[in-house]
Design a protein around this nucleic acid. Structure first.
Length: 491
RNA sequence: GGUCUCGUGGCCGAGUGGCUAGGCAGAGGUCUGCAAAACCUCCCACAGCGGUUCGACUCCGCUCGAGACCUCCA
């Protein structure tokens, strides 16, 4: 298929033509959640962003292997070398096995992502299931002379690495500046330099999650899991590595260093980073305590929320902004998305029942063209959505008999909506998940009710017709009288 | 303090050296028993100050303001 997909590469800070390492295959690795709590709105951003990337690459004909990890060990809080393990802490507080915590929140994460219509990755590896691979990689880095062992821990030697390679290319950080900006080494610190980071940590007395290693009992550092698992499943060199912008430094910078130290090559060809979601102009995050979980959004169960928001509204809200822009949350903005999406989906329904005319009075080819142009330009979903809204106007005009479309025009528009709205943007209607049988039954019943109401209206029995409409309205069913009879929809 | 990003109409958000983003909200109109929806029209924005240019919201500089990263965070 003819296309010129351009991707913004965080490493070069430029848009680059997307050329996979070995087409038609494409490998993508995205940093998944650390499962010690429910996913919040911020977690939905990378999930949906890279879901769009996955869906579009698949649409273009690539065979994508999509790896998204579950971090369940090694992610420490407060300070990368001295804090308590996040999972371990949760387990201690709740008096659970760490893996119970992991399973519980992994399941809930999957539920949330399913509701958002985010496709499951091809492989979802857990860090704790790849201890051997991580140890092997640490050994290789040690053998290559880019790490050192102290007291049963292994640290990456950033200075040694920087002599032959370049550290800081992704984040644009200069090692010398880093040194100047860093806090002073604590007296008992084992590291040679503050910039060094842990590849393997010796487990202290109270540490629950621990594995044997050549350096004694311990656990892997946070950064090594992604390097080890991505190379295991995608090879030493793969196409796309994604994640949130906040992971750019140090996490991804360290990944680059680790892979280079182990194999001598850059593992990743295109680094992609989604921007943050803000609330009152500030980043939504765990540390600031200003996050709202996805479940709270779905249920409207949070003091900052005026109402519940459906998963599709959240998805649409996120797709209405470009993934590299910050996106500011507010009830007003979310309500706007909610209504906009409704309008889009209603037009999609209308399109299914449009009657073809002999000749078209409007041209619809440009919608598809604009959608392709938008997505080819670094996945510009808001522009693609704008193009679909252009088509909404056309569809409604045809419905109102102000314009007309012939058979070919309608089927082309249908195909465009099916491709972009449903398949690529993944904005299926809420009702799509309900059983078809139930749906059909309600449809027949409604047809009957509306017929009775139509009779009443013909007899100018407004009392009866309004009663039917009001009763239905109470059942959250909205009736609209159009030129060709009434239609209904669930509110 | 260092590195970087951004500042678009009531709100959210695209984009571009000269031509309409789009959505939501608001105003008027068409339609309609009423209502809702839909459609049409309007609200013609680009932080400020300089500079480059025939022409800048778009390029450059400065000022002001906001944010991210530099410590766990998607």
């Amino acid at each position: 298929m003819q296309h010129q997909l351009v991707v913004y590469n965080s490493l070069s800070r430029k848009k680059e033509l997307f050329k996979p390492f070995s087409p038609p295959f494409a490998g993508m690795y995205v940093c998944g959640p650390t499962v010690y709590g429910d996913a919040h709105l911020g977690h939905a951003r990378p999930a949906i962003t890279f879901d769009l990337v996955l869906r579009y690459l698949q649409h273009l004909g690539y065979k994508v292997r999509y790896v998204r990890n579950i971090t369940d060990v090694g992610h420490l809080e407060n300070d990368s070398d001295h804090g308590e393990d996040k999972i371990g802490k949760k387990a201690r507080i709740e008096q659970l096995e760490p893996m119970e915590v992991v399973q519980f929140f992994t399941d809930r994460y999957h539920q949330d992502m399913d509701l958002l219509n985010v496709k499951r990755p091809s492989i979802e590896p857990r860090a704790s299931g790849h201890i051997i691979e991580q140890i092997e990689m640490v050994k290789t880095i040690l053998e290559n002379g880019f790490a050192y062992v102290v007291n049963g821990s292994v640290y990456f030697d950033v200075h040694q690495y920087h002599k032959s390679r370049s550290y800081g290319r992704l984040s644009g950080r200069i090692l010398e500046d880093l040194i100047a900006g860093n806090r002073v080494l604590e007296a008992q610190d084992e590291k040679r330099h503050a910039e060094d980071f842990a590849l393997w940590k010796k487990a202290g007395e109270g540490h629950i999650m621990r594995w044997p290693s050549p350096w004694g009992e311990g656990f892997p550092g946070w950064h090594i899991e992604c390097s080890a698992m991505s190379s295991k499943y995608l090879g030493e060199v793969f196409d796309i590595h994604g994640g949130g912008m906040d992971l750019l430094f140090p996490h991804h910078e360290c990944e680059i260093a680790q892979s280079n130290a182990a194999t001598g090559k850059d593992a990743v060809r295109y680094w992609m980073h989604n921007n943050m979601i803000t609330i009152n102009g500030q980043k939504m995050g765990k540390s600031l305590g200003n996050f709202i979980t996805l479940r709270e959004f779905f249920e409207g169960n949070h003091p900052s929320l005026d109402q519940p928001y459906s998963p599709m509204s959240i998805r649409f809200f996120i797709l209405q902004a470009h993934y590299r822009s910050t996106l500011d949350f507010s009830n007003e903005a979310l309500q706007a998305s909610d209504k906009g999406l409704k309008r889009l989906l209603e037009a999609y329904e209308t399109l299914q029942n449009l009657q073809p005319a002999e000749k078209s009075t409007v041209e619809t080819q440009h919608v598809e063209k604009k959608c392709y142009e938008a997505l080819n330009d670094d996945f510009n979903s808001p522009l693609a959505i704008a193009a679909l809204f252009d088509a909404v106007k056309t569809i409604n005009s045809v419905k109102d008999k102000k314009e007309s479309l012939d058979k070919a025009g309608i089927s082309h528009l249908k195909a465009t909506f099916d491709t972009f709205l449903i398949d690529i943007l993944g904005l299926k209607g809420e009702s799509a998940s309900e059983s078809k049988k139930f749906h059909d039954l309600v449809g027949s019943l409604m047809q009957m009710v509306l017929e009775l109401r139509q009779n009443a209206r013909q007899n100018k029995d407004w009392q009866t017709s309004d009663k039917i409409r009001n009763e239905l309205s109470r059942l959250k069913i909205e009736v609209k009288d159009g030129k060709d009879g009434a239609t209904w929809s669930l509110q």
